[in-house]
């Protein structure tokens, strides 16, 4: 599948993936995250349930301390 990940086109071998699977494939190991799929916020408790499909727009923001 091909999705938009953080405003960039990215292709994955699988036809669909959960948020947790995308985090694993991308090697995103961050603790504090905000994830949106097609404009909707996805809570951490739903990272195994929400399915990302071809054409979806995914935003993954890694929150880090400092300010």
């Amino acid at each position: 599948m091909t999705i938009i990940l953080n405003n960039r086109t990215e292709s994955f071998d699988a036809n669909q993936l959960t948020i947790n699977q995308i985090l694993k494939v991308k090697n995103f190991t961050f603790k504090m995250l905000v994830v949106k799929v097609n404009g909707e916020l996805v809570r951490r408790r739903d990272f195994d349930n929400v399915i990302v499909k071809d054409g979806d727009d995914v935003m993954i923001l890694h929150l880090i301390t400092g300010g």
Binding site: V34, K36, L41, L61, L63, I64, T65, G66, G67
Partner: peptide
Amino acid sequence: FDKAEMKQMIIETVL
């Protein structure tokens, strides 16, 4: 904010 968890909290709240 300074702390990552506070940043996450306000983003989730506003969204």
